[in-house]
């Protein structure tokens, strides 16, 4: 059996014998809108193409009401709403010591995103926002509060952030779970959430 030292020695002996420097990678975001509204519009366009929904709160509407309105066809009086955010109360708190399996009956998980990416309509979470990572996949639906001011232009910018360096788990969600594995027919909710709704909410 070859272990670490053998494998590394083989690589050292076999690797191509020339030097190839790492290239400099431009940011490629000159053509993105420079204002927050423009970036948000780009974000929404891609999010919707990827199967996500954008729910703009109406005047004087509570976030709770916005969520209920956006998920009207998915919620009933008995729905279990697990909220990790202060702005929406929900009826099930997620605690760090909950076992993942204990979250199997959650209908809606409500999370705050760390940031968004306009290029792909992506929202980002780490374990800090998730509390129990699995809740974002075991829930039937996901509601995400996103501060529009945190939307990055593209993935190059997104990967210049520091979030990943300390987080144990950093995940990009772009719309809900999806598959086209049967005859190329697009189906939402293959294994994870069936829907993903983003509500713009500035961080207070």
């Amino acid at each position: 059996m070859r272990g670490r030292n053998d494998i590394l020695a083989d690589i050292r002996a076999n690797k191509p014998k020339f030097t190839a420097p790492a290239p400099a990678v431009p940011n490629y975001d000159d053509h993105y809108p420079s204002d927050a509204a423009g970036l948000q519009a780009r974000f929404i366009e891609v999010l919707e193409k990827m199967g996500g929904a954008w729910a703009e709160p109406e005047a004087n509407e509570s976030l709770e009401a916005t969520m209920r309105r956006a998920l009207a066809d998915k919620l009933d009086a008995n729905s279990l709403i697990a909220s990790n955010v202060r702005e929406i109360k929900g009826n099930r708190r997620v605690h760090a010591d909950d076992t993942p399996a204990s979250l199997h009956d959650v209908d809606v998980a409500v999370l705050r995103a760390r940031f968004g990416v306009a290029e792909t309509g992506t929202v980002c979470f780490t374990e800090a926002e998730l509390t129990v990572n699995a809740v974002a996949y075991l829930a039937q639906h996901l509601v995400v509060l996103l501060d529009p001011a945190t939307i990055e232009t593209n993935l190059h910018r997104a990967y210049q952030r520091d979030d990943y360096k300390n987080a144990r788990y950093t995940v990009f969600h772009t719309g809900p779970s999806a598959t086209a594995d049967i005859e190329g027919v697009l189906v939402r909710g293959a294994q994870g959430v069936r829907s993903l709704t983003v509500i713009p909410t500035p961080t207070v």
Binding site: V46, M50, G51, E119, T120, G121, T122, L155, Y164, A167, Y169, T170, V171, F172, H173, T174, G175, P176, S177, A178, G192
Partner: peptide, 8 residues
Amino acid sequence: PITQYTSH
């Protein structure tokens, strides 16, 4: 543009 999930 990206897979629905990109997990680090």
